[in-house]
Computed example of a mutant assay.
Amino acid sequence: MSDASDDAALPGSRVPLRELPKISLHDHLDGGLRPQTILELADAIGFEAPAPDAAALGAWFAAQSDSGSLVEYLRTFDVTLAVMQTAEGLTRVAREFVEDLHADGVIYGEIRWAPEQHLTRGLSLDAAVEAVQHGIDEAVDAVDAAGGFIRAGQLVSAMRQNDRGREIAELALRHRGHGVVGFDTAGPEAGFPPSRNRAAFDLLASEWMPVTIHAGEADGLDSIRSALLDGRALRLGHGVRIAEDVEISDGEAGLEVTMGPLAQWVRDRGIALETSPSSNLQTGAIAQWGSTMGDHPFDLLYQLGFRVTVNTDNRLMSATTLTRELALLADAFGYDITDVEAFQLNAAEVAFLPLEDREELVERIGAGFGR
């Protein structure tokens, strides 16, 4: 698939890639708005959007995000967050978010967002979570009524720089069983290690709440180490810089691969890497390896047996879908239907769901991929 087309079929299949069942584990609510929705919500609250129409606004987000800097990339969220400060806005955005996942073939999505960023117009933390869940439920019910299938859960994120981790952990626990399936920390990674929120992680561990942590994106091995030791993370948000602990050298029999103890631990324990290929290029997460998709360490990690998953991170900012991310990887590394199925099975097996629900996802993936 030389053009990385969303509607093409991969080698080994006649089913368009978009129609295959997929799992989305790393997808930010405030990074997945429809441009038209931003304009309409902005108009309702008197906020001036940076572009006058949906096409121009989508292009603005893509251009602003392609900076090579995570800090600059994150500034685009000032616009999306501005229109997500009311219950009505949050509900609409969440509903459309799930609708768009379903249209892309996603059968299970974990939607991460930071409620503490949505309080400027009077919402409480709990009301914000409830508003998002209302939108999720509306979309899931509509898909079910139309004969389709999708399930979704919230990942409540604490912004690591704000030192509200314990408070947000308590929020996540209050809504456990009512839509929240796990906890995350997000925001600027360098300078804000997971150890900074150790009290939150201690609480979550005592209550057996699963945790994923942004680590190995804008910072290196120390950040990953802290995510595992201080955060007890079951998954790594992005995690691509674990490849810094992998050494490739010329040996007598050809290339030799040596893994450090951290990489060995992550691989051998099946700790999932929530990679987001286009985003990783945009933010400079893989800059030390190159600047094209073919330079991404994804394939190296996959071939070495790491539990890699494929995600979008922020569909609006990266002008992407999960289908497109899979197509880009297949185009760069020659993957076929078997490889793409493996990525979905990896994701299903580490979803923050009970075993029975994960087994159902595995069955649906198998059926959809023709096994």
Rank of each mutant, 00 (worst) to 15 (best):
D230M: 07
V350N: 05
L10K: 07
I242Q: 13
N314S: 15
G231S: 07
Q288I: 11
W265I: 06
G334F: 03
V246H: 06
V340R: 13
F306S: 08
R269T: 15
V79N: 00
W289K: 10
R112W: 06
I168A: 06
A319Y: 00
N162E: 11
R267C: 03
E116F: 09
D219I: 01
G260Q: 07
P11R: 02
E170S: 04
G58R: 09
P194A: 12
E130Y: 01
G32S: 08
G177Q: 01
L29W: 04
P11E: 09
V246I: 14
V257K: 04
Q344W: 04
L273V: 14
P194T: 06
L90A: 04
R307F: 00
G220I: 02
E96D: 15
R315K: 11
F369R: 09
V98H: 14
H134T: 14
L326R: 09
S226M: 02
P210S: 13
D53G: 03
L329N: 09
F192R: 00
A330L: 08
R196S: 12
R225W: 15
E274T: 11
G109N: 13
I213F: 02
I107W: 03
A347W: 12
Y335G: 04
G294H: 10
A215S: 09
R196K: 10
L328R: 07
E244C: 01
Y108C: 11
E360I: 07
D202V: 15
A103Y: 05
R174K: 15
S157W: 11
I23P: 08
A233M: 08
D219Y: 13
A253S: 12
T309I: 00
P52E: 11
R151V: 10
R371I: 01
N314Q: 09
S278C: 07
L328E: 08
H214C: 01
P193T: 08
G294L: 02
P188E: 07
G368T: 02
L236T: 13
D245S: 03
A285Y: 12
E116H: 14
F183R: 07
E130T: 13
V240A: 07
A56V: 01
P188K: 05
I168E: 08
I365R: 10
T120C: 00
